[in-house]
């Protein structure tokens, strides 16, 4: 198992390296002259030259790349042109909020999507299946911002059950910062009130964000279960009198979730992209919101930093998914 883990991690290195090369080229090479872009419209040639020297743009490309690698390794992306604060500090403060949102959405999508997909497969072509199929098409097709606003209208404005926006009520003191994950931090501080308040704030954005993923996971689980139900071992288990609920929820499901698991890894990227919209609508102080501002103000250091950090997280999530694959399927573990 250890070799399996090691190998998966090593396999991720080339793609991470590719990410670094790509971001480097996008930022340093593609703009005709990054120094001019940085200096602004009214800069004198002397100012531009100074900037070029300061940023090392007058160095050969490979040297620039090595310097860039060093910076990334030190988690140093420079200073945001907009907030005038180190980009890494902003990311550190905002990333946990986004991760809290995306992970909650992913869990919601997984733990609802897998059972729903399974039920649909068991009731193949009967009403639970048909209902789910319609809903999952809707789930993928519905625009997140529309759904979010509908949720806000219903649960916040109409029913007044859940807060409209934000991460914590303004009347509530934030728990001391430990992990940056508000749910965990409030539990660590024993602040039950802050925990439930955060949870309430989390529900609507997480529901919005999970919608597409939920539909995808349900669809892949359904397809996987349908395929597994055709396999001989299902007939054999039935012939030997294994009760059908055990057969479905234990034996069939474990065989079927491999395809859905792969989707979960891929979905994570989509979730972070989706977080941009959701955070903007719900005023969620995460990295998506921050990135939108950066894009609007062409704050390239922020864009770069966020891209690299999210790329690393994405790779990590997919390694994790691979490891879970290995846990699920013993044959995979032994291939190495």
């Amino acid at each position: 198992m250890l070799r399996f883990i090691l190998r998966r991690v090593l396999l991720a290195i080339p793609s991470l390296f590719g990410l670094l090369v790509l971001t480097f080229f996008l930022v340093r090479v593609v703009p005709a002259d990054p120094a001019t872009a940085l200096a602004g419209e009214n800069a004198t040639p002397a100012q531009i030259a100074a900037i070029r020297h300061e940023y090392g743009f007058d160095q050969p490309l490979y040297k620039q790349f090595v310097v860039y690698l060093g910076q990334v390794a030190r988690f140093d992306f420079g200073e945001s042109a907009y907030s005038r604060r180190p980009v890494s500090l902003d990311i550190k403060q905002r990333l946990p909020a986004t991760l809290e949102l995306t992970i909650t959405s992913l869990l919601l999508g997984t733990f609802l999507g897998i059972p729903l997909g399974t039920i649909a497969a068991v009731y193949h072509n009967r009403w639970p299946d048909i209902t789910l199929r319609i809903l999952s098409v809707a789930g993928v097709a519905i625009a997140a911002f529309w759904f979010a606003i509908e949720l806000q209208l219903l649960f916040s404005m109409e029913l007044d059950w859940l807060p409209l926006r934000g991460r914590l009520s303004s009347s509530m003191d934030a728990p001391p910062l430990v992990t940056g994950f508000m749910l965990i931090d409030s539990l660590l501080a024993g602040r039950w009130d802050a925990f439930t308040d955060t949870l309430h704030h989390l529900i609507l954005p997480a529901m919005t964000l999970s919608l597409g993923g939920l539909a995808t996971i349900a669809r892949f689980t359904r397809a996987g279960v349908l395929e597994t139900l055709q396999r001989d071992f299902v007939t054999y288990a039935r012939a030997q009198g294994v009760p059908s609920r055990v057969l479905i929820w234990k034996y069939v499901l474990k065989n079927s979730i491999v395809a859905a698991l792969t989707q979960i890894g891929l979905l994570f990227g989509g979730l972070i992209a989706g977080a941009v919209v959701v955070e903007t609508i719900f005023d969620w102080p995460g990295i998506g919101f921050y990135t939108v501002q950066a894009i609007l103000t062409a704050d390239y250091k922020v864009i770069l930093g966020v891209t690299v950090v999210i790329g690393v997280i994405y790779a990590a999530v997919n390694i994790l998914v691979d490891l879970i694959h290995g846990l699920v399927d013993p044959r995979l573990r032994e291939q190495l």
Partner: peptide
């Protein structure tokens, strides 16, 4: 009370009849 308990079954292809992940 019939399948498995009073009637046992031996399948044609034992490789396909066993669940690979258990």
């Amino acid at each position: 009370r019939i399948r498995g308990s009073r009637i046992g079954f031996i399948p044609q292809d034992p490789y396909l009849a066993l669940n690979p992940v258990f």
